[in-house]
Design a protein around this nucleic acid. Structure first.
Lengths: 298, 298
DNA sequence: GGATGTCCATAGGCATTCGCTATGGTATGC
DNA sequence: GCATACCATAGCGAATGCCTATGGACATCC
C-alpha cells in the first residue's frame, strides 16, 4: 500500500470507473487496474465490485475510502505547505541562555520570538556556559545566548551587544548619591560576588586584576538575584550587568555607571559551526541586539 | 516522496543517526542514506546537517517533521484499523424505500440502523420503484426497501415480510364499527386510490380484479398520507398497508382487517445482483423484518 | 601522531516494481 | 449478431529499492 495506490483507489471510487480514474491520473488503464489489484491483495479484501459498466465500492472499499482521503490530504498538504512552513519557522526549536542573562532577557525575548514565529514550538533553557556548549555540541539546543570569550573551534559566535557593568550599592550607602562610580570605589569595600560557576564572576575578576584592584569579597552567591537582594540589605557592593539593573529596578539600590573605562561584557549568540543557517536563530540575534540597545538608551 | 522515505526520515530525526534509523527500520544503512537524499532532492532542501557523529535536523527538517509524523500516523492507523472499520460498517451507505413504505418504516428503522452502525454515514432516499431500480443499477444506492414483484434479472430480492392491506374508513362510516371487512364492502363505495406511479396502486388494482370487484374511484392522491386524510374527512374508503395504519393511528378513522383472503403486499430488500454481500444491507433486512413482524403482532 | 572506530556517502549488482502497449474476455445495446 | 465499453492479463523495458563492499571525514585512544 503506497500513496500512488491510494490515489488510484480514490480516483476510481470517485469516478466509478477504472478507465476514468486512469484518465484523471494521466496513466494508462492497466496501471490503475494493477495497483488496485495489488492494494486489494495487501488488504486481503476486494475493494470494488466489477460491473459490466464500471465498478462500485464494496463494504471494504467504503471503509477504506475516508482513511485513504485523509492520508492523501495530509500528504498533499505536506508537499503544498512545506515551503510556507519553512518560511514561518515551523518546528521545534530550543534556545538557551546563561543564568546571568536568561532571567533578564527571556521575559521580553521569548514573547517577541513567539509573536514573530507563532507556529514554532519554542523551548527555553537556562544553564551555565559550559553545559550550554556541550548541548550545542550534541545539538540538544539550537542556539545559546551567552557572553564571550568562548574558546571552542566548533562553536560559532555572533556578538550582538556589549553592555556595561554597573556598581550596585545599597540606597543608604555613602556612594549611593554619587553620579558616577570609579574603579577605586571597589577597593576594600565589602563586595558580593557570584559563584565561580558563572562566567560573569571570571569576567569581573579579570577586570579587577587589570585595574590592580583586589576586591574584598565577603560573600559568593549562586545567582545574581541573590546578589542584588544582599546589596539592597547593605551587606556589600557588587558589579552587575546593565540588563540586571534595568530588569529589576529598586529604590533600595543605587546602580552607578562608571565614569571612565567601565567594565563590560559582550553578549553573543552561539551556535554550532556545523548547523546550517536558521531563520529563528538569525531573528533571535536581531531581537537580542534590539533589547540590549534599548537598555543602553535609557 | 513516499511513505518509506518519510518513515526513514522520522526514524533518522528521532534517533539522530542514519545508522540507528536503519537499525530501527531493519534495513541496511545505505538504504536510509539513499532515500533521505532522494527526499531532500524532491523537497529541494537539505533536511539534516551531517555531523561527524550523526546528523541534526535543519530548519527544513524541523518543519517537515510534524507533517511527516501526521502522514505516517494516518497511514499506520489505516492499516491497523481497516479490519475494525470494516466490521463496524464504516463508510457511506445510501438506502432507499418507496413512498408507501419510507414514511412508516424510516422513522423507526434509521435510528436503529444508526445505533447498530454508529460509524456509518447513512443516507436515506425516498423514490418510486422504477427510479429506485435505476439507482440500484448505477449503484447510487446500496439497497432499497420495496414491494415485489420486480421483474429485473439484475436485481436481487430478499422478501422479509408480507403485510395485509386494511380497509380504512371514516370513524362515522357505517362500516366503522364492524369487526372485519369483506371484499364486497369495496363494491360501489366511493374509493380513494393512489396515483398509478405507486406500485401499491397496481397491487390493489390487481387484487380487485382477481376478486371481480370494480372499485368506484373518486379520487387519486400522490401520497398515502393524503389518502388517509381524505378518508378521515369521509370522502371515501381506501385500502392501506398495515404499517401505514400502525404508524399514523387516528380516532377519526377505522382500519379494518379483512375476514378472509386479505389483500397483502410483500416487503423486500432489493440489491443489485453484482454487489458483494454487505453487513449493513443484511442488518437492514433483519431490522425491516423485525419491524414488520412487530406490526403484525399488535 | 598513528592506529582505530564511528558514521555517512557512493558504487555496482540484483530483484522487484511500475507503467506501457497489445490483447483477451464479458456484458450491453442497437 | 456485430459494435462498443470496460476491466484483466501478458509481456516488455525502464526505474527503483535494497543489498554488500568500499571510501572518506572526523573523533578517540594509546
Amino acid at each position: 500500500m503506497d500513496i500512488q495506490q491510494l490515489r488510484y483507489f480514490v480516483a476510481a471510487a470517485e469516478t466509478g470507473s477504472i478507465t476514468r480514474a486512469a484518465a484523471r491520473c494521466r496513466v494508462a488503464q492497466p496501471s490503475v487496474s494493477q495497483q488496485i489489484a495489488r492494494l486489494e491483495a495487501t488488504l486481503n479484501h476486494p475493494l470494488f465490485d466489477r460491473l459490466p459498466r464500471g465498478i462500485a465500492l464494496t463494504d471494504a472499499g467504503k471503509a477504506l475510502l475516508p482513511r485513504a482521503k485523509r492520508i492523501l490530504s495530509e500528504y498533499d498538504d505536506a508537499l503544498l505547505h512545506f515551503e510556507d512552513d519553512l518560511d514561518q519557522g515551523v518546528g521545534r526549536f530550543t534556545i538557551a541562555a546563561i543564568p546571568t542573562i536568561a532571567p533578564y532577557l527571556f521575559p521580553k525575548l521569548l514573547p517577541m520570538l513567539a509573536r514573530d514565529f507563532p507556529r514554532a514550538q519554542l523551548t527555553a533553557i537556562e544553564d551555565t556556559t559550559e553545559n550550554l556548549i556541550a548541548q550545542l555540541h550534541d545539538h540538544t539546543i539550537d542556539a545559546a545566548i551567552l557572553s564571550p570569550p568562548i574558546d571552542d573551534p566548533a562553536i560559532k559566535l555572533r556578538t550582538v551587544a556589549s553592555e556595561p557593568l554597573l556598581l550596585s550599592v545599597s540606597a543608604d550607602h555613602p556612594l549611593a548619591h554619587r553620579p558616577r562610580a570609579a574603579v577605586p570605589d571597589l577597593r576594600s569595600e565589602p563586595t558580593i560576588a557570584l559563584s565561580e560557576a558563572h562566567c560573569l564572576a571570571h569576567q569581573i575578576t579579570g577586570f579587577c586584576a587589570s585595574k590592580r584592584v583586589a576586591p574584598n569579597i565577603v560573600c559568593r552567591t549562586t545567582h545574581l538575584a541573590t546578589t542584588l537582594a544582599l546589596v539592597e540589605q547593605g551587606l556589600g557592593i557588587a558589579l552587575i550587568p546593565l540588563m540586571a539593573a534595568r530588569a529589576t529596578p529598586s529604590t533600595k539600590r543605587s546602580d552607578l555607571h562608571f565614569a571612565r573605562t567601565p567594565p563590560t561584557r559582550d553578549i553573543a549568540i552561539a551556535t554550532h559551526k556545523s548547523s546550517s543557517p536558521s531563520r529563528i536563530t538569525d531573528h533571535l540575534a536581531d531581537l537580542t541586539k534590539q533589547l540590549c540597545e534599548r537598555h543602553d538608551q535609557n
